[in-house]
Amino acid sequence: WGVIGHQTVAKIAENNLNIRAKAAVKDLLPDESLTQISSWADQVRSQPEYRYTSSWHFLNLPDGLDYNSFTQTVKGLSGDNIYTAILKCGKTLSDPSSSRAQKVEALKFMVHLVGDAHQPMHISRAEDKGGNTIQVQFNGKGTNLHSLWDGKLLDAQGLTADEMATKFNKTNPAQILQWQKDPILKWLFESYQISSKLYAEVQSGSKLSEEYYTKHLPEVQLRLEQGGIRLA
């Protein structure tokens, strides 16, 4: 996601933290909110000392996997990716022997990566760089499929992250509980299923407008909401 998308996920999470987690977050980040640090991982990924984290933001996969083959493929991948990075950050945060500095960094990554795990185009194909090389037009302006889903669809709403978090805060407790029980691999598979559908819908050069926006905005909103609830 772009800045607004990550801020929305972080704000929804802040609204759903329990007392213990809220106190821990306050201790680790005394002067910043989760919203404020939600895009830190994007800001540092091009710096030499953090270049090793650039593969943490996504998963490249072949087409046509069912859930079983998806989970086997993801678990069998070599090298770091969004799945191994989320597991690693979780381990650092729950390990009493991790230093405070390690936990602060793991928290900043976790807030960002759980958001990215819910952006469908982050769980997609390698050959088009997650839709980055699929050029499309949206409302008469040139963009690409990845960028459209990162921010352009959200920007078209004209709402701030706080406004979106409030708007999406209507989930019933049973649904929250279910989403929070879902394993990380299921979050990733949901994104994979959506991106497969998005690829099938557009060809490079497609002209997309109101109809595409109306069709997919509820899906964007759902992914941000699930991301925030599961991050909490």
Binding site: A13, A21, L93, S94, Q180, R230
Partner: peptide, 22 residues
């Protein structure tokens, strides 16, 4: 949620007072 789970046993590091620093 993942933060509610991984931070459930979080303990803040004890703050060192200035007069305890070596």
């Amino acid at each position: 949620g993942i933060l509610n789970e991984v931070l459930k046993n979080y303990k803040p590091e004890p703050k060192i007072k200035d007069d305890q620093k070596t």
